[in-house]
């Protein structure tokens, strides 16, 4: 029972990471841009959701606001700052987008203050449901798993089945050729960036609802999102999904199982300490292992 619940926790965590990593990997893969400010867009989505949900009393409007606000901020940032960075090297991109983190964090602190905001779950999504097998699990966390799966299917359809998807894939392969064929590459980039931003905003709103909405909430998640796209292979949505679930499950199951494992041959409190410490290292060990085996990531195209 504990294992099943932890597996669900890992799945939910993985789906949340996927929403973050999908945008990051698209931007990185298609545009060749390292965007450290992705975590700020996540935070922005959470604040927009909290603010609109508190003002209107409707959680659905809050979610819509998180998508809209993060996408709008994404467009603004892309046009004003990022556009100038495509031709520069990665170090300058890192520097500029790190500056954006500071601007967004201080700006948000200025508007909303330093005190964390807390969202109330809508009545329809609150409480726990009993799953087959008798396990009780919070409905909202199940909903996050559902949203993540829906986004994964939606993204796959978008990339594999639509004209926009063809352009995105073409832009990834050879941007000069695509531009020469008459595709407005600048607009395409803005669109991709806004899409990634909106997904980050959605992830922020969903996570902010079960945890708390505060300045600086995006940076710890950003690090994990980078781990995910490195494991999955840069630019691959499928890789991001598989890697996100792998990371989520490794983290949740590792933290649950390792202390119990160590408790078999040592004192409980020491086992707790060592198990927890090793549990939080597991995903990085996983990353190192994958990189040794496949340096380009699980589904990475570039060798």
């Amino acid at each position: 029972m504990l294992l099943a619940e932890q597996a669900l926790n890992g799945l939910q965590y993985g789906m949340m990471l996927f929403l973050m990593a999908a945008g990051l990997t698209l931007v990185f893969g298609v545009m060749g841009l390292i965007n450290l400010a992705h975590g700020s867009l996540y935070m922005l989505g959470a604040f927009a959701c909290a603010w609109v949900a508190a003002a209107t009393g409707s959680f659905a409007l809050g979610l819509a606001a998180s998508l809209a606000a993060a996408a709008a901020a994404g467009v603004l940032v892309e046009v004003a700052v990022i556009r100038r960075l495509y031709a520069r090297d990665h170090l300058e991109q890192v520097l500029a987008t790190f500056a954006l983190i500071l601007v967004f964090s201080e700006g948000t602190r200025w508007v909303f203050g330093s005190f964390p905001l807390y969202l109330t779950l809508p009545a329809a999504l609150s409480g726990a449901v009993t799953l087959p097998g008798g396990l009780q699990y919070p409905l909202f966390r199940l909903a996050i798993i559902g949203v993540g799966a829906a986004v994964a299917v939606g993204l796959w359809l978008l990339i594999a089945r639509t004209r926009l998807g063809i352009r995105i894939r073409a832009g990834e392969a050879d941007r000069e050729m695509v531009a020469a064929l008459g595709v407005d590459i600048a607009r395409l980039y803005t669109l991709v960036f806004a899409l990634g931003a909106a997904l980050a905003g959605l992830a922020g709103a969903l996570v902010g609802t079960i945890q708390s909405v505060q300045v600086g909430m995006g940076e710890p998640v950003l690090i994990l999102a980078f781990v995910v796209i490195v494991i999955g292979g840069i630019g691959s949505i499928k890789g991001a999904l598989v890697a996100a679930l792998l990371v989520g499950l490794t983290d949740a199951l590792g933290k649950a199982l390792l202390p119990a494992l160590f408790a078999r041959f040592m004192e409980v409190s020491a086992a707790n300490g060592i198990g927890a410490a090793l549990g939080s290292m597991l995903i990085y060990i996983l990353m190192a292992g994958v990189l040794i085996w496949r340096p380009q990531g699980l589904y990475g195209a570039r060798g």
């Binding site: 029972m1 504990l2 932890q6 966390r141």
Partner: peptide
Amino acid sequence: DYAAEIAQIR
């Protein structure tokens, strides 16, 4: 996020 701890409590 306390999902893992809550699972252990349960």
